[in-house]
Design a protein around this nucleic acid. Structure first.
Lengths: 150, 150
DNA sequence: AAGATACTCATACTTTCGGGTGATTTTGGT
DNA sequence: ACCAAAATCACCCGAAAGTATGAGTATCTT
C-alpha cells in the first residue's frame, strides 16, 4: 500500500517534469490547453481508479453457489488441496481433522500433537465451522467426501 | 453506472470551462504551471478513485459451497452377519450404529427411530462395549473395518 | 410356563464436546 | 521492518455423550 503511494507520487513528479519541459510547445499550439487538461485528467482518473481498487475493501453480499466435487471411492487417496484452501483449512487444522477421523478424543489429539487440549478444541471448532458440521462425526464424513482425508 | 459516467463527463467539461476562463490569470503567475497540474491531478485522482470503486467493486461476492459428488459408483456393500452376531450386536443396535455412522446425534437418532434419547444411549453404550470402543467415532471406524456398515 | 434375549425407559452422575471470547506468540510474505 | 494469518492457550458455560444401575414389557424358545 505504502509502496503504491510512493509510485504514484513519483509518477506525478515525472509527469510534471515532462510537462514542464514540453509546455512551451503545447502553449504554442494556439493555447489549446484543453487537450493538455484532458490528457492529465485521463491519466489521473485511471491512476485514481486503480488506487481506489487497491485501497478499499469491498463490502460483501454473500451468495452461496454449489460446486460439485468429484470423488473417486477406494482409489489411492489424493489430498484435494484445492478444496482444502478453498475452505481455508490450515495445516494444523487438517492434522487435527485427520486424528479426529481416527477416533481420537481431544485429549488424545493434544497428547499426540504436544499442545494443550484448549488448542485442540480451537482447531476442532474451526474445522467444524469451515466444514459446516455440527459434530466431529459429521465433519469426518464431509472431509472424507471432499477428499481431505483418506 | 451510465448515469455516473455522464456526471463525470459533465464535471470534466465544467472544470475545463472554469480553467479556460481563468487560465490567463494562472499563466500570469510566473508560469507556475505545476500548481495548476497539481490541482487537476488531485481532483482527478479523487474522482478516479471514486469511479474505480463504483465501477469495479462487485456488490455480490459469490462464495462457492462445495458438495461432494461421487463419480464412480461405490462397490456394493455386503454386511458381514457372521461378525455381527459373533459380537452379539442386535438389530436395533446395528440400526443405531448405522445412524451414528451418518453423523447423527443421539437426539436425532431418537427422533428417527421413535424412541427416547435414553434408549438410544443404552444402545450406543452397548455398541461401544461390543465393539470395544471408547467413543462413537471409534465405534464407527471399527464397524466399518468389520463390514458392519458401508 | 419358565428362561433367555431384546427392547424400552428412567434417573443420576461423570466426562467429553462445542461455542464464545480474548489474549499472546510465531511465522510467512511483502 | 511490518502486517496478516496462523498457532497457541485460557476460562467459562451449556449441551451432548457416555456410565451405571434398575426395571418393565415383549418375544421367542425349550
Amino acid at each position: 500500500m505504502r509502496k503504491n503511494l510512493l509510485i504514484y507520487g513519483l509518477l506525478l513528479a515525472v509527469l510534471m517534469v515532462v510537462l514542464e519541459v514540453t509546455k512551451y510547445r503545447f502553449l504554442v499550439l494556439e493555447n489549446r490547453i484543453e487537450i493538455y487538461i484532458g490528457i492529465i485528467a485521463i491519466v489521473f482518473v485511471v491512476m485514481g481508479a486503480y488506487m481506489g481498487r487497491k485501497l478499499t475493501t469491498p463490502k460483501e453480499v454473500i451468495i452461496e453457489k454449489l460446486v460439485a466435487v468429484p470423488t473417486t471411492p477406494s482409489a489411492p487417496f489424493i489430498l484435494n488441496e484445492t478444496v482444502l484452501d478453498k475452505l481455508g483449512i490450515s495445516k494444523r487444522e487438517h492434522e487435527v481433522l485427520q486424528l479426529m477421523a481416527e477416533g481420537m478424543s481431544n485429549q488424545e489429539i493434544a497428547d499426540k500433537t504436544f499442545v494443550s487440549v484448549n488448542t485442540v478444541k480451537t482447531h476442532v471448532s474451526n474445522v467444524l465451522l469451515k466444514l459446516d458440521a455440527k459434530r466431529r462425526t459429521q465433519a469426518v464424513i464431509k472431509a472424507r467426501e471432499l477428499s481431505l482425508i483418506p
